[in-house]
Design a protein around this nucleic acid. Sequence first.
DNA 1: GGAATAACCTGGATGC
DNA 2: TGCATCCAGGTTATTC
Length: 327
Amino acid sequence: MPELPEVEVVRAGLAPAVSGATVLGVTVLDERALTRHGGDGEDFEARLTGRVVDAAARRGKFLWLPLRPTTGERAATDAVVGHLGMSGQMLLRAPGSAPERHERVRIDLVHPAHGELSVVFADQRTFGSLAIDELIATPDGAPGGFGWAEASVPAQVAHIARDPLDPAFSDAAFRRDLAGKDSAIKRVLLDQAVVSGIGNIYADESLWAARIHPETPARALSTRAVNRLLGEVRHVLDKALAEGGTSFDAQYVNVNGQAGYFAHSLNAYGRTGEPCPRCGRPIVRVSFTNRSSHFCAHCQRSPRPLQASQAGRPEPLGARAQPRHPA
DNA sequence: GGAATAACCTGGATGC
DNA sequence: TGCATCCAGGTTATTC
């Protein structure tokens, strides 16, 4: 499930291969991969072919490749925007290589130093997408994202907040946002308009590290607790980045098709029934807005007594997960 | 306007 | 062995 570390690993892999490369041709095999694009596959191919890629940039879980105009030395005005969804992959392949399983789009490039190569967008569950979108100015005048020094960002990424590793991320603004939210802190961490790059895995891990119960109302957190949480979010993301991201299955790999190792370092996520690394009591799993939360009920005390009617009560150990759509 | 929820989608795992 | 069902979860449209 690509979150910030996984997407950054992909961005870092793409950057040296595609920066300065010219698009020779584009093949759209499945137009469902263009749900964010304003036109059809032919439009996507026509608008991309012949363009020069300026860089590989990222904000939160969104990637983009800024495109230079076909003539002159002007700055990039639009970009190929990509989101990996749950199972998207960006792979670097030799030109003419065999089609990947679930390949949706192939972009053939020629790089002045590396020669010809292909960027393959493959996506099993088709939650990911590619689009060509205009670049607009950032409201704060700061660079649009990682790997992109210009103060611009694709229009469809403009509503996405900066991530906690971004030098322009404002801790004070984050604290103010939380102080005005009644929602559970985990829900707020997953809200990409508040803070980007965090998904279910790193939300659970950060809350476990900060000893905060996921159902705690955001506004109930003290300044000290918010600062501790931000510190743990950054620590978890940095560590995952250093280990190449989290791979549970073949759905997350870097541009060379290799898996990351952070799954071995998880303390709470996916460890239902296993002892908490801190206190030894079992990690519990509860249903949470169509997904799961994993936490230690001892280290992460509930903000209030859980009522029997609450959907989020811990399951007995070894119990089967609740159906997502109970009758 | 803020918050909560459902829908989208595929393939591996599991149960019968 | 084959079929049906569950499950994973990021984003967004819809509903409350």
